[in-house]
Nucleic acid binder design. Sequence first.
DNA 1: ACCGGGATGTTCT
DNA 2: GAACATCCCGGTG
Length: 200
Amino acid sequence: MSAFERSFFERDALEVAPELLNALVVHGQRVARIVEVEAYRGSEDPGSHAFRGPTPRNLTMFGPAGHLYVYFTYGMHFCANVVCSEEGVASAVLLRALDPVAGLEEMRAARPKSTDVKLCAGPARLTQALGIGRSFDGADLLDGGALRLERDEVAPPADPLVGVRIGLSERAGPSISWPWRFGVPGSPALSRPFPHVEGV
DNA sequence: ACCGGGATGTTCT
DNA sequence: GAACATCCCGGTG
């Protein structure tokens, strides 16, 4: 494992997202590999929380890169994003699925009903398994704290799975068909399959 | 396997 | 008052 440079995240989320695949999320003893992400942008992305400008809830998205944006949704779930771009620009990568690597006992304790492969297979499942809640909104992932992001020896896939983002409604307008979801091919821990794409 | 609905509360219209 | 970047369970085939 090695640390990320801050500058890695000071780019558009759409660029960063596929390069975050196979990186590791570490929280204390718990470690999990990123296998699925989505890119969100404020200014030109109707699917983003930040589309209509800053609010108390989405303020972290406008903050410095390399910090975590945590939001609460559906009255019971937390989801986590890695903030990208320079301060003032809302851009973030949603963590959608992780493959558990270590600290499985703690994850099982946090999600007693779950099978191992589904411990982190979803944006709200992974926050539950890792113990990420509201208090982590704004946390710096690069300051060597308990919660951090690390590079692994395994590089991002050369040909990631690509698809449309999950869970957006008609309010997201044309962005519902933008291919801003990325995944590690063959991973058993995806939140849902990627529809097959014609090609080559 | 697929589908439908309930849980739960914050945020913005 | 409606929507929500979700998850889980219980029905049916």
